[in-house]
Design a protein around this nucleic acid. Structure first.
Lengths: 327, 327
DNA sequence: ACATGAAGTGTAATCGTTTACAATATAGTG
DNA sequence: CACTATATTGTAAACGATTACACTTCATGT
């Protein structure tokens, strides 16, 4: 628990010199440097980040806000963020909002209190107005989800195109009765993916039936199951399902399995996200891969540049359709 | 970005009084309090955690070290930690070690640099000696994994008993040829669960065959698949599998599905951990539930008490066998 | 030998809080 | 009303670093 003063005394120099040895590496003779180094060694001194942060008025901490830590979609993104952040000398604080505005506000207070230098928001349910407001004062970027008419820089994929290609893939396999398993339309990505679905259906002159569009308000496994129950209770049953999330798709798959519907022979299923579990199911899930690691590392890079005061542009990354056994 | 000085000036009081309004709530008249409150309001002042931390020489940050963020086993634990931590005024930094000692050391440096007040370690591959060393100086607790001959307080379950009960469950169902799908024996929990397995087999006079004990060095989905390939290539094939992790069990299940082996009719499978995906498979997995949320919140409570200087005792929690479709 | 300038080092202010201690105001007592 | 005892408030010193600025050296050219 030595301080810079003790090191200075032991080395017979001033604190300024010790600080210079610690940071600059310029403008200090080899001789004093070794004296200081030895003193540091002897006392096994480590500078206090607390003191340094106060003086530099920065914390080198990044807030990463996600709705739920158990959603595997975010795992790879977080990996990307963390690797880049650590490389640049930042650490991350993972904040689980549970889509709860109160909790959200607690985390926002961390940046107002200077405990964080910037925010990467990935919560689609975040209070958009509040976020815009904060973004005027503090560095904020959005990852994956973003606000259409906001000004916050973001990184995302072309959701509409990705959905379009996924549905086209089903159509090319001869599918005609394709259901959409969507999440709540209040989310931008949900609307965009629905757009892509409709575009593909129209392009190939297939009917868009309201009964085949199922909107679930939660991205839960059970919602996927429920969707299949509803869809398959209809007179005119779909023979393929495009789900906007792997979790929903896995729920749908489970329900098909339970009902003895063979996948892909009786029902073909496409998911979205390529979470790690999507190839552990039987059959493995066809899905749209988002470049999650890259999304993470790019958003980390963006927020760090924004903290430094550079101005940054939004980025749209490429996706990829991963064809596996479920289609 | 107002400071306490500006608030003091605006309210016509000293900084000490402002600070008292902020913290104590005692020993300041109603009149001055309202003056100060109004000034705070007007400037919309928020105290800087940086300054406060330096003065109090604490950061109110907890380090939570896990090998991999994508392992769903940790999700619930982290939820438990976070809820308790936030309630006590702490925030957590999630640190993914990737079981990489270098990375581990980076995170250890955060506590040496006073950027964290304590560590909750959940990494079974952590360098035990290093951890013991640090535990002399800094508050550290272990969650789930721990060191038998160490002195670091920990929270865990009775792995041996849990494994024993899982295997006994299989035996009671009439199973006689039970394979053990273990992870690397360097982990304490692996050795303990193997103990439980062997104890159950012995108690019911069933032979323990070396060929039926498969040790995988990674807790990966693919290891589970590989295990089934190996086990089922033998002349004397097991008819049940006890896996020490759900991920391994899900891998095994997938391989059984591929090979047309019916679960549970041809092969019964038991997993361990009750991760959320364990009931999304077809059939849903019988598994041993660890009280993960509770483990998290208890370890958070422990580390906070330890930071305060209280001394804390290790805790062993109850587990539960969850019987589902795979047995 | 001396002025010059560069290079290296030291002094002290600063970041934004908290808090021991001193100072002052207020209430209570005879 | 004078005098304590007590309740509030203010002053200034920490906490542990960084850094502008001032000061010392010391090699160089004359």
């Amino acid at each position: 628990m030595a301080t810079i003063h003790e090191v200075a005394r032991k080395a017979g120099v001033s604190v300024a010199t010790v600080s210079r040895v610690l940071n600059d590496r310029l403008k200090v003779t080899e001789k004093t440097r070794t004296k200081v180094d030895r003193a540091i060694e002897d006392l096994n001194y480590e500078p206090s980040v607390l003191g340094r942060n106060l003086r530099n008025s920065e914390s080198r901490l990044l807030l990463v806000m996600i709705p739920s830590i158990s959603n595997p979609f975010y795992s790879q993104i977080i990996n990307g963020i963390e690797d880049t952040a650590v490389r640049e000398g930042y650490n991350i604080m993972l904040c689980e909002t549970d889509s709860n505005p109160e909790r959200e506000e607690i985390y926002f207070s961390l940046i107002r209190n200077r405990l964080a230098d910037g925010i990467i928001s990935m919560d689609p349910t975040v209070n958009k107005k509040r976020l815009q407001e904060l973004a005027c004062t503090y560095p904020i970027v959005q990852c994956s989800e973003y606000d259409e008419d906001g000004t916050i820089p973001h990184v995302t994929i072309d959701n509409e195109l990705a959905a379009y290609q996924a549905v086209r893939h089903l159509i090319k396999l001869g599918q005609k009765k394709i259901a959409l398993l969507n999440s709540d339309e209040k989310f931008l990505y949900a609307r965009e993916r629905q757009q892509g679905y409709e575009q593909a259906m129209q392009e190939f002159d297939l009917p868009i039936k309201k009964e085949w569009i199922y909107s679930s308000n939660a991205l839960e496994f059970h919602s996927g199951q429920q969707a299949v129950r509803t869809l398959m209770s209809q007179a005119d049953k779909p023979t393929a399902i495009f789900a906007v999330s792997d979790i929903l798709a896995i729920g749908a798959l489970k329900e098909c399995n339970i009902r003895g519907l063979r996948v892909p022979q009786d029902v073909a299923i496409v998911g979205f996200d390529k979470i790690s579990f999507s190839n552990m199911t039987h059959p493995a899930l066809t899905t749209v891969a988002q470049p999650m690691y890259q999304m993470g590392s790019i958003s980390a890079g963006m927020i760090i540049r924004k903290i430094r005061g550079d101005n940054v542009e939004s980025v749209i990354l490429d996706h990829e359709l991963i064809i596996r056994e479920s289609t």
